[in-house]
């Protein structure tokens, strides 16, 4: 698209959407939200960027290699956190027993592994949304 207003506004607004998504992910254990909601916000900000600037430029910002890395990296991070539970406490995805720092409830640094799992889910959901959109929009008419 060639609309100057759209380009300028999108360039200004995208970092704020992404910052809000990161805020939602990191505050998932003390406020409404979490990995799914925040990941969706980051994914939609990238979709906005793709709609305004085109697929080619968006691919330069977030390439297929990066999306493949984030897709599998999210799940592998999740499973690694679970395996820490097996090694330390004896069962998969142990939280308190695995020696994660519980902190004081209600502060940002609390709840042990829950913020880490939320970060893993957020990475996974954001990359899923942007991969779906890029794949569906790239199909050429036969």
């Amino acid at each position: 698209m060639k609309d100057q207003v759209l380009k300028t506004i999108a360039r200004i607004i995208t970092p704020f959407i992404q910052l809000y998504g990161i805020f939602i992910i990191l505050n998932g254990h003390i406020s409404p939200g979490g990995g799914f909601a925040g990941g969706t916000m980051i994914g939609t900000s990238l979709i906005l960027y793709t709609l305004v600037f085109g697929v080619d430029q968006a691919k330069r910002k977030f390439s297929e290699k990066a999306s493949a890395f984030a897709e599998s990296g999210g799940i592998i991070l999740y499973i690694l956190i679970g395996v820490i539970g097996i090694v330390v406490a004896g069962h998969f995805l142990a939280n308190k027993g695995a020696g994660f720092d519980m902190g004081t409830p209600g502060s940002l640094w609390s709840a042990g592994m829950i913020p880490l799992l939320m970060i893993a889910i957020g990475i996974k959901v954001a990359s899923t949304f942007i991969t779906i959109f890029h794949t569906l929009i790239e199909v050429k008419d036969a």
Partner: peptide
């Protein structure tokens, strides 16, 4: 997502 991808393939094949 999966059904949309199938519809895209059908549109490519049958128009």
């Amino acid at each position: 997502v999966y059904s949309l991808s199938l519809v895209i393939r059908m549109h490519e094949t049958y128009g």
